[in-house]
Simulated assay, not measured.
Amino acid sequence: MNRLGIKEIEAIIPHRHPFLLVDYIEDFEPGVFATGYKCVTFREDFFAGHFPQMPVMPGVLIIEALAQVGAVAILSKEENKGKIALFGGIDKCRFKGQVQPGDKLKLETRIIKEKGPVGVGEAIASVDGKMVAKAEVTFMIVA
């Protein structure tokens, strides 16, 4: 297993607090897949307004977290080191559950297509083994 802590993640992708949505990578294979986690706490900035009476992690941020895990997979390839992966699209997106404070969000992204600087990742987010979101995320590698 190839575990990465926050400093190693920051060395691969450009995101920083409060927009870095991955706490650690449990395992990855450059250009193939990455599995990471976000430990969701009540102190997340987005909970102040989404929703104070019933805090729920916004779905778009779950997809962003999945994309960041995918970026670790694709940007850890030797030829992509030092580059940035931009969002190119989201397809087949479905939300199946809520993510709330105290949840440990598992983020799995597998690269399923790559052609030049464009690629697609199949992404699944889950809590306690139950899928909460899935999507295909398209990315573009830029210098």
Rank of each mutant, 00 (worst) to 15 (best):
I9K: 15
I9F: 14
I9D: 15
I9V: 14
E10L: 09
E10T: 13
P14N: 06
H15A: 10
H15Y: 12
H17S: 12
H17V: 12
P18F: 11
V22E: 09
V22G: 12
D23N: 11
Y24N: 13
Y24E: 15
Y24S: 13
E26V: 13
D27C: 13
E29Q: 15
P30E: 14
G31W: 01
G31I: 00
V32K: 13
G36Y: 13
K38V: 02
R43A: 11
R43M: 10
E44P: 12
D45Q: 07
F47A: 02
A48E: 14
A48G: 06
Q53F: 11
M54Q: 06
P55F: 08
M57V: 07
M57F: 14
M57L: 15
M57R: 07
P58H: 13
G59R: 07
L61D: 08
I63D: 05
I63E: 06
E64Y: 05
E64G: 04
A65T: 08
L66E: 06
L66F: 09
L66I: 07
A67C: 07
A67P: 06
A67I: 06
Q68A: 09
Q68C: 07
Q68N: 08
V69T: 15
V69Q: 03
G70E: 01
A71V: 04
V72R: 05
I74C: 01
I74Q: 03
L75K: 06
L75S: 05
L75T: 01
K77P: 03
E78L: 01
E78T: 02
E79G: 01
E79F: 02
N80R: 09
N80M: 06
K81M: 09
K81Q: 13
K83H: 04
I84G: 00
A85I: 00
F87R: 04
F87T: 01
F87L: 07
F87E: 01
G89K: 03
G89W: 02
I90C: 09
C93L: 07
C93G: 05
R94L: 00
